[in-house]
């Protein structure tokens, strides 16, 4: 008996289940049709992103407020380990001590925040949506339209928002370190250099500028898309695994096998996902540091 069949018996097909789970709780109450629509906002992503930021800020702030040079407690020790890790990584990439005063806290923020947002994947895939369905229904709305996505980093708006911010910071440092003139000069002379022949120099200038544009765009897009892709795929796989459990039709052999398969697969994927969650958070932070480091160096 297929998962689809089983789900269908409960009134929802697998496709509908997945589609429902992939729909945001947004300001238009359904799936966004246009690829880009600035009038729409995903409440769920913004809510969880802000909530996790607030929790992380509070914990770190409490630790920081009571931080002492004496023997640290466990929480302080954990935060200190993260801080030391970020300081080490930042020192390796950015050689300006002045810039590190901003970039190192930036790295810490990114790592902790992205880690927490990724870690939302560890909650059972139906937990928050079902709770939300209850609240939404109790509030007098149609529970079938209670959409909720709990993993902010599986929303491309969140990841691209962060990578765009990183791009802005890179541009800021490009101007700050090299000056407007120096940076403009670099834009038309790197990576292919220039020529003494004015015609060739102009052509090379266009080519260089195009390359620089491509570089910035591709860095930013790959930065955001990498995190989004990993987390989206992770979330989707959790949904697919959950479908096995949804194939329950009673105490019969296929149902029990599906149930066991669900448990085993979900456990295995969750354990593997611990690695993905931490690794993607670290990669996002490292790439941020590397890009800002590149903004400090001439080609």
């Amino acid at each position: 008996m297929s998962a689809e069949h089983a789900a269908a018996q409960q009134g929802v097909t697998s496709g509908e289940y997945i589609a429902h789970h992939l729909t945001y709780f947004n300001s238009i109450g359904g799936k966004q049709q246009a690829i880009i629509d600035w009038s729409v906002i995903n409440y769920d992503s913004v809510f969880f992103s802000i909530a996790l930021a607030v929790i992380a800020s509070l914990v770190m702030w409490l630790v920081a407020r009571r931080a002492s040079a004496g023997i640290p407690g466990r929480v302080q020790g954990a935060v200190e380990m993260l801080v030391e890790m970020v300081i080490d990584q930042t020192k390796g990439v950015i050689h300006s001590a002045e810039s590190r005063k901003f970039v190192a806290p930036l790295g810490l923020t990114i790592f902790i925040w992205v880690f927490l947002m990724n870690a939302m994947d560890f909650l059972p895939v139906d937990l928050l949506p079902n709770i939300w369905r209850g609240i939404y229904g109790a509030a007098g709305h149609d529970a079938h339209h209670a959409y909720l996505r709990a993993v902010p980093t599986a929303d491309i708006n969140i990841t691209m928002g962060m990578s765009l911010t990183v791009l802005l910071i890179c541009l800021y440092y490009n101007v700050k370190i090299k000056g407007i003139g120096g940076w403009a000069h670099e834009l038309v002379t790197a990576p292919f250099g220039t020529s003494k022949n004015p015609v060739v120099a102009v052509i090379l200038g266009f080519v260089n500028f195009a390359m620089q544009l491509i570089e910035f765009v591709s860095k930013t897009i790959s930065h955001g898309m990498r995190l989004f892709g990993n987390m989206f795929a992770g979330e989707l796989l959790f949904m697919l695994i959950a479908l096995m459990g949804a194939a329950w039709t009673g105490a019969n052999v296929p149902s029990v096998l599906f149930f066991i398969g669900d448990l085993v697969a979900a456990l295995a994927w969750a354990i593997f996902h611990i690695l993905v969650v931490a690794l993607q958070a670290f990669i996002f932070m490292m790439l941020t540091l590397v890009y800002i480091g590149q903004a400090h160096e001439g080609h």
């Binding site: 947004n26 629509d37 600035w38 729409v40 995903n42 992503s45």
Partner: peptide, 9 residues
Amino acid sequence: NLNATLIAQ
């Protein structure tokens, strides 16, 4: 789909 969430973020 891109939307205002990006700006909020």
